[in-house]
């Protein structure tokens, strides 16, 4: 099939790699390989000789791909970062979503677009999941520390749970600080004094 592209995905996390593959498969019948080990990345990619390389923007090994732009031999195909000049701003969208694509020289932008769109959608999902996870973690941590601070106040002042909570909230409001921060300070101070 003439539309089949050979795609290399650089991703160390196996689950993420599988999810990316699923998304790309939905965008067309492509030949997809995953590289998980980044030692000698440029050399590995050279061996696969792909049309498109996809890599997470946060991956520090990304710089290794930049040297592929300088094809060193006559048989080598120069690979450069995909940049669209169209109105949709696909490159900017990719960067915001956290993925970058490298394509071989002379590749028609129309052929890469569906692949890149699928990758962008998947990386946006990753980003959302990461944000949600971080937010949930933070909320849990904060609840834990507020509960501990509340317990300390109840013990030290002999008040009820509701009164301890009210006192924490009032202090936070008076000092223009977040309740979690006030609780954190109390727990740290108590730790130092005990």
């Amino acid at each position: 099939m003439p539309n089949t592209l050979s795609i290399v995905v650089v991703e160390a996390d196996r689950d993420r790699a599988l999810q990316i593959i699923d998304s790309l498969r939905a965008a067309g019948d492509h030949d997809i390989r995953v590289i998980s080990e980044t030692t000698g990345l440029a050399r590995q990619i050279h061996q696969h000789n792909p049309d498109v390389v996809l890599i997470d923007i946060e991956n520090p090994s990304r710089d290794m791909l930049e040297e592929l732009a300088l094809a060193s031999g006559p048989q080598d195909r120069a690979v450069a970062m995909f940049v669209d000049q169209s109105q949709e701003g696909l490159s900017a969208a990719a960067i915001e979503a956290g993925v970058s694509a490298y394509v071989v020289g002379g590749m028609q932008p129309e052929r890469v677009t569906p692949v890149l769109e699928a990758a962008i959608a998947r990386f946006r999902l990753f980003q959302r999941m990461r944000a949600e996870l971080a937010e949930t973690k933070r909320a849990l941590e904060e609840r834990k520390v507020i509960d501990r601070a509340k317990g300390m106040i109840m013990k030290a002042r002999g008040v009820t749970e509701d009164e301890a909570y009210a006192l924490l909230r009032k202090t936070a409001m008076d000092q223009n600080r977040r309740m979690a921060d006030v609780a954190e300070a109390l727990v740290t101070a108590a730790g130092l004094l005990s």
Binding site: I57, E58, S61, E66, M81, S91, A92, I95, S100
Partner: peptide, 15 residues
């Protein structure tokens, strides 16, 4: 930034 290429792109695309 995690890498020079990413920093260059963050600059190029206005991030």
């Amino acid at each position: 930034a995690p890498s020079w290429s990413s920093l260059r792109d963050m600059l190029s695309f206005g991030q």
